[in-house]
Amino acid sequence: MRVTVLYFAGARDLAGRAEERVDVPDDVRTVGALAAWIEQRVPALAGRGGSLRWARNEAFAAMSDAIEEGDVIAIIPPVAGGCA
């Protein structure tokens, strides 16, 4: 299954890339499993696990959500909109 992975802000700096298309192994079928798989490929992210959120197709996802061919998965570091 192929999905697109987006890295933003500090996660992009750590990963050294903004976006990639990846072929995920057959046993990776949920957002949580994909997150674990990505953290193996980008170890610098693993230490940030507790502060990262994950989005699937432009909405926050639960770790148990299923992923599908063509999904866009985004790694969301701590957000910081606004000012005050």
């Binding site: 933003f8 802000a9 500090g10 989005a55 926050f60 570091p77 701590p78 957000v79 910081a80 909109g81």
Partner: peptide, 21 residues
């Protein structure tokens, strides 16, 4: 502020960093 995926990099005399990171 809690949920919208917007980030900011703060620049000051000591350099720059991602706020909240």
């Amino acid at each position: 502020k809690e949920r919208v995926p917007i980030w900011k990099r703060e620049h000051g005399p000591d350099g720059a960093y991602w706020v909240g990171w």
